[in-house]
Amino acid sequence: MEKTITVTVNGTAYTRTVPLRLLLVDFIRDECGLTGTHIGCTYEGRCGACTVQIEGRAHKSCMKLAVQADGKEITTIEGLGSRDNLHRLQQAFSRYHALQCGFCTSGILMNAVDFLNENINPSEAEVRRALVGNLCRCTGYSHIVEAILAASATRHGLKPVPPPAETEPPP
């Protein structure tokens, strides 16, 4: 009922003997100690808070068993960018206030990075549809969409969506 597996997470190989039924999300959180990947729905795979990248693609890690990731490369939020070297999408999220409680944020970022690799210059409607698998309860999504659009434009050297005026109080 157990198996020894090696999963590479953010470039580090983790070799662990795990129960066959262990969910990948619990492997990441409990075995690797990477708690930036969150759990919000616990079985239907709807909320997307646990989204990570497996071999570069966004997947909900609560919908996989750890043993299925044996030999695979996984990137979690902890591998996206560091405090001093944030990914441009992380920067945009902070700039546009695209997170409040932050619980859904890791999953959104891991999905959005995959999405922007696929669609380099998406429309607002495309961004919104790309986010269907990530529920957010705080933001109303507007700022998230703005941040993703801004990050996608920056990437191509296009003029970024202007950042919110830092000093301008409301009229």
């Binding site: 997947h59 996989k64 790309a130 269907v132």
Partner: peptide, 9 residues
């Protein structure tokens, strides 16, 4: 179908 992550899997 579903969402991006579901379609990836």
């Amino acid at each position: 179908v579903g969402d991006r992550q579901v379609r990836n899997a």
